[in-house]
Write a protein that binds this DNA or RNA. Structure first.
Length: 429
RNA sequence: GCCCAGGUAGUGUAGUGGCCCAUCAUGUCGGCCUGUCACGCCGACGACUCGGAUUCGAAUUCCGACCUGGGCGCCA
């Protein structure tokens, strides 16, 4: 019976393990193999003079990263990793790995991101890389858990859509039988339709597609969005949910991922809620001071400005009260000052993580806003219809899961936070 | 989309006109080695993205192509 390597302790008498050959150290009469599985690494020691003939035959043909099965007695040895080692009675090569390897799993020699992504299956064998995806899994689990505990319905909405409804970013066109279709950039409109559907609290964690030709360390053409929408809520209500979600994710990782964090070398600090809130106008002032640029109301906060504000804030923070003209048509303007709206961005000092808003729920006002943005109402009928038959007030947001993980783990490149990134140039693997 | 930088053994690098039939590390293969843990030591193997041009001479300069990284815009 195979046991996970982490369950083999110095007290274990006999164990059978399977895994990959991590390292080989051949001292002549004595050979050490490090065998790695999902759970850890163990040393397998062979004394040439004492080992069974079958074992000696096997080890001659072994290569790094081959898949092996080892069974034998376990001894407590201070000098070995984890304080124990196996002396094999059985040593079987289940599947031999070719050599040379496309990259060094032991990380003696670094590999460039491009090389790593080309051989991602090998790259994720590296304990450090593996830890990132263990943590990613934990983050998404914690987020799911939060939503379920708070009465949200888990929805999935179409990724193939008929028209470019949201404006703004470019969409990927695809062939859909005899029709033209697109990959959806956001579940936004569908979340809103489900507010008209009476679901009240929904969330979706799924892919979004953006056909922008950007080439940066913080953009992907296929990303994972954590999305939510809540009826009878305003922007303040959903900002509270958003900061709770971020804190819950950090909390869970801090509580359950010690080992993975240690492998990455991160001393995780859980952000404290409530996060500070500054208005767009205040952000402009801080940015102007920090960069020397003269920013005016209505200007977008560029990367340089965003970083300057991030440096000043030093923690997660919200930017609220955005100019209506630079936010999407569905953001609700304030009644007393329609030049600003109930939209917000959640910022990490390094970059934007999320944006959201209270939405316009009145049909005629929405049509006005769509037209004010210079968009045609034509393709919007399927979206506008629900607003005529009892649409409740509602608010929501979408957060980039990769950005959350990237900033949490201080990863240099967002591609490190996805298994198989899709960017301007990469379509395989 | 605009701008900048870069492509050298399987991997990561040095080399900016002759000192380079190319450096170092890791790897692979062979040899020695009974407690390694980046094992050590000896030996070998393995590379200048492609095409054109300049030059007595090009990894090195120029042009084009292809590929890659990054910045900006925009965004999550």
């Amino acid at each position: 019976m195979r046991v996970p390597i982490c369950e083999v302790t110095p007290e274990t008498e006999y164990a059978e393990i399977t895994g990959w050959i991590h390292e080989i150290r051949d001292l002549g009469g004595l050979t050490f193999f490090l065998v790695r599985d999902r759970t850890g690494i163990i040393q397998v020691t062979i004394v040439r003079k004492k080992a069974p003939e079958g074992v000696l035959t096997t080890i001659r043909e072994i290569s790094r990263e081959s898949v092996v099965r080892v069974a034998g007695t376990v001894k407590a040895i201070d000098k070995a990793v984890g304080g124990r080692e196996i002396t094999p009675e059985v040593f079987e090569v289940i599947n031999r790995a070719e050599s040379p390897l496309p990259l060094d799993v032991v990380e003696k020699v670094p590999a460039e991101l491009d090389t790593r992504l080309d051989a991602r299956f090998l790259d994720v064998r590296r304990p450090r890389v593996n830890a990132v995806f263990q943590i990613r899994s934990t983050v998404l689990d914690a987020v799911h858990d939060y939503f379920f505990r708070n009465g949200f319905i888990n929805i999935t909405t179409p990724k193939i859509v008929a028209a470019a409804t949201e404006g703004g970013t470019e969409l990927f066109p695809i062939a859909y039988f005899e029709k033209e279709a697109f990959l959806n950039q956001s579940p936004q409109l569908y979340k809103q339709m489900l507010m008209a559907g009476g679901f009240e609290k929904v969330f979706e964690i799924g892919p979004i597609f953006r056909a922008e030709e950007h080439n940066t360390v913080r953009h992907l053409n296929e990303a994972t969005s954590i999305d939510t929408e809540v009826s009878f809520a305003d922007h303040n209500d959903v900002m509270k949910i958003l900061e709770d979600v971020v804190v819950v994710a950090y909390d869970r990782v801090a509580a359950t991922c010690d080992e993975h964090l240690a492998r990455i070398g991160i001393d995780l600090e859980v952000p404290k809620s409530p996060f500070p809130r500054i208005t767009y106008t205040e952000a402009l002032e801080i940015a102007s001071r920090g960069t020397g640029e003269d920013l005016a109301f209505g200007d977008d906060l560029g990367t340089v400005a965003e970083k300057a504000v991030g440096r000043e804030m030093g923690v997660h923070y919200f930017i609220v009260d955005w100019p209506t003209e630079i936010k999407p048509y569905y953001a609700m303007p304030y009644d007393d000052d329609p030049t600003i709206c109930r939209a917000f961005d959640l910022m990490h000092p390094r970059m934007e993580l999320s944006s959201g808003a209270q939405r316009i729920h009145r049909h005629d006002q929405l049509v006005d806003q769509i037209q004010a943005k210079g968009l045609g109402v034509d393709g919007f009928e399927f979206y506008l219809k629900p607003f005529r038959y009892g649409m409740p007030p509602h608010a929501g947001w979408g957060m980039g899961a990769e950005r959350l993980i990237m900033t949490m783990l201080d990863l240099a490149n967002i591609r490190d936070a996805v298994l198989f990134p899709r960017d301007r140039h990469r379509l395989t693997p």
